[in-house]
Amino acid sequence: MRAFTKHKGVAAPMDRANVDTDLIIPKQFLKSIKRSGFGPNLFDELRYLDEGQPGQDHSKRPINPDFPLNHPRYQGASVLLARKNFGCGSSREHAPWALDGHGFRAIIAPSFADIFFNNCFKNGLLPIVLEEEIVDQLFTEMYAEEGYELVVDLEEQVVIKPNGETLAFEVDAFRKHCLLNGLDDIGLTLEDADDIRAYEAKRREQAPWLFDAVK
């Protein structure tokens, strides 16, 4: 996995609450058996004026001029500002893949849905929870200033505003460690293989019906 240490980038808005993963990446693109290539279809139904299909040449599609991510000022943005309960709904990991594919590295919101939040960390994408008033303030400042850039420092657990003000955020020690070092957590878990085997042997004894029932 790609490591995340410190990142500086232009902030862009997804200014509505309860953005679901169907909206982040619509189902027709979930037919792919790959992990990449979802970037052009991020927020497909909002970004384009027509209905997207997999395998299309997206550069030829009509762009929705009202959608902020299409505005020139947000081109190349890599920090997404979002509202409450971002990423709710379907567990599709295609959602963080699409955000990543479009170039986002961090998402800041007052709250995230659990599964989406978890999926981000597996893909080198950092979801940051800040208080609602602080997020409101960031939205206001971003709208007011073209090219508004934020620095996200995972090591120090702070977001740094253009005026130098720092906003502290929480992150689980384990997730932080994995993200900072780009660690593959399967490898880490397999270091505990003996514990897993010991547990399994005990479980097999106590609940034998759970084993070899389906073959």
Binding site: N119, I186, T189, E200
Partner: peptide
């Protein structure tokens, strides 16, 4: 529910973090 990375994790380790 779990994401696809976790599907791989459970397949490889029988566990979830």
């Amino acid at each position: 529910g779990i994401g696809t990375s976790e599907v791989e994790h459970v397949m490889a380790t029988q566990c979830l973090i």
